[in-house]
Amino acid sequence: DKPVLAIQVLGTVKWFNVRNGYGFINRNDTKEDVFVHQTAIKRNNPRKFLRSVGDGETVEFDVVEGEKGAEATNVTGPGGVPVKGSRYAPNR
Rank of each mutant, 00 (worst) to 15 (best):
T76I: 01
E67R: 15
K31L: 13
D62I: 00
N17S: 09
V83A: 03
S86L: 03
H37N: 08
G69V: 01
K48W: 03
F35L: 07
P46V: 07
V81L: 13
Y88D: 06
F61Q: 03
D29V: 08
G54E: 11
N91F: 14
V59G: 01
N20Y: 10
K84I: 13
S86E: 04
V53K: 02
R47P: 03
R87A: 12
G79P: 00
V81R: 15
P90T: 10
A70S: 13
S86K: 07
A70P: 15
V9G: 05
P90D: 07
E57C: 00
Y22H: 15
N44Y: 10
G69W: 04
G54T: 07
K84D: 06
P78F: 04
D55H: 11
R51A: 10
V59E: 01
A70H: 14
K14N: 11
P78I: 08
R51P: 12
V63P: 01
E57S: 01
N45Y: 00
N45T: 05
V81A: 15
T73W: 14
G56W: 01
R47M: 14
P90F: 10
V36A: 13
K84P: 03
D62M: 05
V63G: 01
N74Q: 05
S52D: 06
E67I: 14
E60M: 15
T58H: 10
N20K: 14
V59H: 01
K48Y: 04
E57L: 01
R47D: 15
D29N: 09
N74R: 08
V64M: 06
E71K: 11
V53M: 07
T58F: 08
D29E: 04
A72R: 00
L50E: 08
V64Q: 07
G80M: 02
K84M: 12
T39N: 09
D62W: 00
V83E: 03
D62K: 00
G79I: 02
G21R: 06
P82A: 12
Y88A: 06
A72I: 02
P46H: 07
T58E: 11
E65Y: 13
G66C: 08
F49M: 15
G66F: 00
G69E: 01
G79S: 10
T12S: 07
G69H: 07
S86A: 05
R92Y: 10
V59A: 02
V36L: 10
E65C: 13
E67W: 12
V75G: 03
I7F: 15
G85W: 04
K48R: 07
E60N: 05
V59R: 00
E71D: 00
V53E: 00
T73L: 14
V53R: 00
F49W: 14
D62R: 03
N44H: 09
E60H: 05
D55G: 14
D55V: 13
N17K: 06
Y88L: 07
Y22S: 11
N91C: 13
V53A: 05
P46N: 09
P78V: 11
N28I: 10
V75A: 02
A70N: 13
G77P: 02
E67S: 14
S52I: 02
N44L: 06
V13I: 08
F49K: 15
V81I: 14
A89L: 08
D55M: 13
G80C: 03
R51I: 05
D33G: 11
S86N: 10
N74G: 03
A89W: 05
V63Q: 03
T73G: 08
I41T: 12
N44R: 08
I41V: 15
S86Y: 01
F49Q: 14
V75H: 03
